[in-house]
Design a protein around this nucleic acid. Sequence first.
DNA 1: TATTGTTATACTCTATAACTATA
DNA 2: TATAGTTATAGAGTATAACAATA
Lengths: 140, 140
Amino acid sequence: MEAAERRRLSGELRSVCMRVSRRARFENITDLAPHQFSVLNRLNSESSSPRKLAQIECVSPPSMTRTLTGLEGRGALTRTTDPLDRRQVVVCITEQGRALLRDVRRTRDEWMFERVRCLSDQECAVLSEAQLILEKVVAR
Amino acid sequence: MEAAERRRLSGELRSVCMRVSRRARFENITDLAPHQFSVLNRLNSESSSPRKLAQIECVSPPSMTRTLTGLEGRGALTRTTDPLDRRQVVVCITEQGRALLRDVRRTRDEWMFERVRCLSDQECAVLSEAQLILEKVVAR
DNA sequence: TATTGTTATACTCTATAACTATA
DNA sequence: TATAGTTATAGAGTATAACAATA
C-alpha cells in the first residue's frame, strides 16, 4: 500500500476510533469521572502512593490528593501511612472500588456490544483481526 | 460467532479504540481544547448560531458563549448579528480558524501514520476493511 | 409574551506556592 | 536540608438563574 493511501487510512482510523471512544464514554453516565476511573483502574493492578499516581497520570500532587479524597469518600480506596517511611501514604483499592470499576466497564462495553451483535460473522472476523493489529499499534 | 465471543470482542475493541483515541489526543499538545476543536470543526462544515451550537454540543448556552469568546479572541471565528432576526448571532469560521483546524488534525493524524506506516500491506488491508465496519458501528 | 444571547454566580477540576510531618 | 502529602489560593471549564434586546 502506498504512503499516501496509508496516510488517508491513518486519518480515517484515528477519527473513527475517537468517535467510538467518545460515544462509548459519553452515552453512558457512570458517575465516575474519567480521571477517577483512570486512577482506580491503575490501583486495580497494584497499590501505589499519591506521588507515583500523580506522576503516572501526569497530574499535580494536589490534584491527585483531591481525586483520592473523592474516591476514598466513596469507599473505593483506602489511604494508610507506610510504616517503613511514615511520610508516605499507601493507596489501596477496596472491594467496593473493584465493583465500581466492573460496573463502569460493563456499561461501556454494553454500548459496543449492542452494535457488534448486529454485524455478520465475516465482519466480526475482520474486527477481531483488526483489534490485534490495533493492539500492536497502540503498544508502540 | 457466538454471543459470548462477540461480547469479548466488543470489550477489547472498545478498549483499544479508547487507547488509540487517548494517545492520539494526549501525546500532541495542540493548544486547542477538545470543546474548542469540536465547535470549530462543526463551523468548518457550516456557519451556525450560539444556540444551535450549544444544542449540538450538549452544552449550556453560557458555556457556548464562553467557548465562542475564546475562539473569537484567537481570530478563529467571527460573530455578527443576523440582519433578518437581530436577536440571533451568526458564527462563521475564519481562514485562520480553518488553518488552526488543519494543524490539529495533521498533528493527530501524524501520530497514527507513524505507526500505520510500519505495518504490512496485509495488516493495512484488514484495518481498511475494519474502518468501514467501525464507521457503520459508530453511525448507529 | 416568547426567544436569543449574555452576564452573574457557584461548583468542579486543574495548577502553583506555602505549609506540616518525617527522614 | 530534602521529600511526601496536604492545604491555600487562583484560573479555566461547567452549570443554573437573572437580565437585555428583539420578535
